[in-house]
Amino acid sequence: MKIHKYSFALLLSAFVFGCHATPKEAYTYDAVTTVVNLIATPERYFNKKIEVDGVFIGFHQDRLYLSSEHAENMISLLSISVLDDTETEEGSLTMSPCSGEWVKLWATFIPAQQPGISTEQGRLVVDRAMLHKDGKTCWKRTEKSRFVN
């Protein structure tokens, strides 16, 4: 009888607390990589979900730079193009607090139109971005991208 009491209490607490606890967002990604890897061996990451760190600039052209020095001088050779296809400008990654910051991006790396020939080898279609300075999510995709299957 005691066992039944405990199990009932456990079940009740699981129900009460389980319903109120914020479900932790589950992200499944294929690789954790760097801007340098994406530039050097883009084909390894095509159509994969990746995690990558860098400085995101959304002012002149949406790009993820290797470091703040590269971002300040807009050295695009050491950066990856970010494809921001959000519907409204207000909700876009470009206009978000992520711009100009050291961020972690969870994204899909899609190949450019002509990989190996085009200037851009691939582009990042971002799902979520997190600021490194405070660990807060600065942007999150709300609608599915038409560039990712």
Binding site: H60, D84, T88
Partner: peptide, 20 residues
């Protein structure tokens, strides 16, 4: 190009937008 509702309008190209 964006329409009055600020949504992508005719000619809008996500790859070319925000790029020189």
């Amino acid at each position: 190009n964006r329409g009055a509702n600020n949504k992508p309008a005719v000619g809008h190209d996500a790859i070319r937008a925000n790029a020189p």
